[in-house]
Amino acid sequence: MDYSSILTFLYSQFFIVPEYPEKSCKGQVFIVTGANVGLGLEASRHLVRLGADKVILACRNLEKGEAAVKDIEQSTKRTGVAEVWSLDLSSFESVKEFAKKVDTLPRIDSIVENAGISTTKFQVFEGNESTITVNVISTLLLALLVLPALKRSAQRHNIQPRLTIVASEVHHWTNIPERNKRDSIFEALASPEDSEMGIRYPVSKLLDVFGTRALVERTPSSYPVTINTMNPGFCYSELSRESSGIGFWLMYKLLARTTEVGGRTLVAAALGSPETHGQYMSNSKVEEPSKFVRSEEGKKTQERVWAELSAKLEQIQPGILQNI
């Protein structure tokens, strides 16, 4: 664990409040995954408030998604802007169907991949532990599947679309211990005997950082899409629904940002400049990722992760790497 990051975390939670978004989004089209609750909902609310033409809330539960749309319309007084699309990241077929629908949009300015789960219970989705399937494999699968649509929007509308993968500062707090247990990192993560489920969420977010960086390293110069990853901070959200105990309750009460403030950081990344391409953002600005990510061992681990992850993605959707 990078212990200096804990001090940075505490300072951020106590003393830094990300700026309230004011930049106009008039004429723009956004997609936010996991948008029926929490940070995704608040980010979507901000985007509607800022004048976006369309904000698509990608949700697993359509009923909750429709309720979120009504809530956004009531608070922003703008109707007909937010709409719900079905997306279940526990199913690769659902991700593929969603991406096909995205491909029909005449314009896309930004996609925020916010949906994720946090659990200590080992269960399997699509042949992998659920957190890895949802937070990592399906997240990167969707990212690569929508790149052609984003690049097409860039050319048609002379814009620089953005693709944001929501990570977390907790990626500082792990170095993926499972990487030393088998030759294959993902095989170890899929094994209940090798998995350390108490830190599975931080591991998934470190994998997101690695995946994003590895993807961007494979993009040519002057790439037409800005791809970044970001940390919203510790916020009130349903992500922590399984957490309990007096210690966690006190930390929540003392440290957690409001969901609205957390949503501001998603908007900052969703509107990020081309300079954020390949970068990790925290408190709505570019910051360094963990020491492990930047270390020689981290670089080697990133290449191992990408080799395994890209092979999985090719198996799920043959030819997908050509989308880069």
Rank of each mutant, 00 (worst) to 15 (best):
M1Y: 10
S5R: 11
I6G: 02
F14N: 11
P18M: 08
E19L: 11
Y20C: 09
P21T: 04
E22C: 13
E22N: 14
I31N: 07
L39E: 01
L41G: 03
L41W: 05
H46M: 05
L50R: 08
A52Y: 07
I56R: 00
R60V: 11
N61T: 06
G65C: 07
V69P: 00
V69Y: 13
K77G: 14
R78Q: 14
A82G: 01
S90V: 06
S90F: 02
S91A: 13
A99P: 12
K101A: 15
V102L: 05
S110R: 03
S118A: 14
F125C: 14
E129P: 02
S130D: 11
I137V: 01
L142I: 03
A154I: 03
I159S: 08
L163K: 10
E169P: 02
W173I: 01
P177G: 01
R179W: 07
R182I: 03
I185N: 05
E187V: 06
L189D: 01
G198N: 07
I199S: 00
R200E: 10
P202L: 06
S204V: 04
K205M: 07
P220Q: 15
Y223F: 15
T229N: 10
M230W: 06
G233A: 08
Y236W: 06
E238H: 13
L239E: 07
E242S: 15
S243R: 15
S244T: 15
L250D: 12
V261L: 06
V261F: 02
R264M: 01
A268E: 08
P289D: 04
R294Y: 04
L309K: 04
A311E: 15
Q317D: 13
I320K: 00
